[in-house]
Design a protein around this nucleic acid. Structure first.
Lengths: 338, 338
DNA sequence: ATGAAAGCGCTAACAT
DNA sequence: ATGTTAGCGCTTTCAT
């Protein structure tokens, strides 16, 4: 590999001069600069990142912590964030963390081993030590899609959004509404709370067990969730609120396979408005999070946090939007079933 | 940040001893080892990666080059690869490359700046300089899903698989088959070749313009592709072969919106067997690539290549499988339309 | 405007 | 078994 010394030797100058050229510093003779640039071009020299990071005590890269099973919403989000980060001049290092505790510990260790400029959390780590580290070292960090005390975060009002989603169902005449949500992350609980809230406000009696909590938020678990619901409730419901579009997709699969029509027999609303939602049959009614804005704001908040001692707004709550498509329909009989 | 010197000082030993403990080397007194381990635990010390990488001249990390618009198939593949790489003790660094030339150049520069142990290409870069670098430096590398001369690669016989897919349609009585494929990557062309091949073998006259090549392989471009087909052909076809499931998903959207039923009016077969294929309505008939095996083999081939001077089988061709689901049906009238 | 020298945190070769 | 030393590739004082 060609190093700065090689370049220096070949042009008969010192490494310092080459370094100055590479980093665009002043105080170097124009002719010499040209000569060096030319040689760099020819040799394809690129400064060693490790060496650079060692002396500078920083890496110009930010870490993104994300579940290794990231869903389509997160996938879209991190692309946007990555793009913005890059426009600010950062590289991006992904930390895919699995659900197991050891994976979180491992992630923390790797995080420490890098001289990151900052970190973005797209994943709600359970281990408090993780947040302690962030907070204690003052490593600039931002969380997106969830809140953690002390860490600036960008998110939507999950509970309110869910209440709106369920209200849509209620306004369509549905009274008999079930839900599939998930464990493990705050948002699953929050979305369920929103559901309870809507029912309460509408004076519809609700019971805990009409929402089933599954282990993950994928279509596969949507299948499990709906099967469980069918077991618990029979066909005694006319609408479903799924905590994610992917859960909804799995649930709809089961419904169809059981000969239950969506939306004629059961209306379904999802959450996230992932790309594919609009390609499903029927197109999915869902809550759209402002992906682009979220990504932008997240990258920007981190950038600000890195470049200024003074505080960042600890919390930014972004607007969501209910997207009504084809998977919800007015309840046929106006009589209340429940 | 706590360094190896801090640890050494606190226990009153030399950095070398601490280093030995950290790296699990022999020749260190058991009691001292314990003492050091304890302090490391307490302080949360983690060796600085840059420093380590600098002296060792390697990083224990492998780079994965992947399009920034990676599709669901690639998404599933890289997760598997990442998991296996990790089990071999490597970390993973992602290089998301955009379609533009500057992005490829940038990717190469970043690649050079890291002391990677190896690289996995999940993306067919256009710039030959990129491959030159890999080949000249002898940096261990493996390409998956496509071939490049001189680089060991893991893939499926794309052309043959496509021929099989189209043969399935033909065996169902379809004679009037159109295709949507994409530019930019070899596989798009190969899959089209397979299509032509099947028609030729079945003595069905074909014309180039019954396959439309779109710019990308996403559902969105499936929409464009089908619209174009409808423009060119009217409704004069009974089956569609889409070069990816995502293209198929977009195409089916248009078909349905036009009131054309799938599979009753038009049969559709996709390619890749992404997770969601089985959740579509109708479930998608498609060609399944052996994702798991592919990921395993790719990681293993790289690992071997890193740890042995002697050659790796330059090419591994894996078996594919046609998965027949609900989106294909026998052509209603046995009379040939074309 | 340019070069010499020190040092970032670590490991390994070489003492002892 | 343990410590001392040199050096990985770079940037940055500090001289000149």
């Amino acid at each position: 590999m060609v190093s700065i010394k090689d370049i220096a030797k070949q042009v008969g100058m010192s490494p310092s001069t080459v370094s100055r050229v590479v980093n665009g510093k002043k105080y170097v003779n124009a002719a010499k600069r040209e000569q060096i640039l030319k040689l760099i071009e020819e040799t394809g020299y690129v400064p060693d990142k490790a060496a650079r990071s060692m002396v500078l005590q920083r890496s110009f890269t930010v870490g993104i912590v994300i579940p290794d099973t990231f869903n389509m919403f997160q996938r879209q989000l991190f692309s946007i964030i990555e793009r913005h980060l890059e426009s600010f001049g950062y590289h991006t290092l992904f930390f895919f963390v699995k659900f197991e505790d050891f994976s979180e510990a491992d992630c923390l260790a790797r995080l420490k081993a890098e001289k990151l400029d900052g970190v973005i959390m797209l994943h709600e780590i359970k281990n408090p030590l993780f947040y302690d580290y962030l907070l204690k070292t003052g490593l600039p960090s931002v969380s997106a899609t969830f809140r953690y005390p002390g860490i600036p975060s960008i998110h939507v009002n999950e509970e309110q959004a869910s209440t709106d989603a369920v209200n849509h169902l209620i306004s369509l005449g549905h009274r008999n509404i079930v839900m599939i949500s998930g464990d493990g992350f705050t948002f699953g609980r929050q979305r369920a709370e929103g559901y309870f809230q809507a029912l309460t406000e509408a004076n519809i009696a609700w019971v805990e067990k009409r929402v089933v909590f599954v282990r993950s938020y994928t279509p596969e678990f949507g299948i499990y969730g709906m099967r469980e619901l069918l077991l618990r409730e029979g066909r005694n419901f006319t609408a479903l609120f799924a905590a994610t579009d992917e859960l909804a997709i799995g649930a709809i699969r089961v419904l169809r396979d059981e000969g239950i029509r969506v939306p004629e027999d059961v209306s379904v609303v999802g959450f996230d408005d992932i790309d594919i939602a609009n390609y499903m049959v029927p197109r999915l009614t869902t809550v759209s999070q402002p992906l682009t804005e979220m990504g932008e704001k997240t990258a920007l908040a981190l950038h600000r946090s890195i470049n200024s001692a003074n505080g960042i707004p600890p919390d930014q709550i972004l607007p969501y939007k209910l997207i009504i498509r084809e998977s919800t329909l007015a309840h046929k009989s106006p009589s209340v079933v429940a």
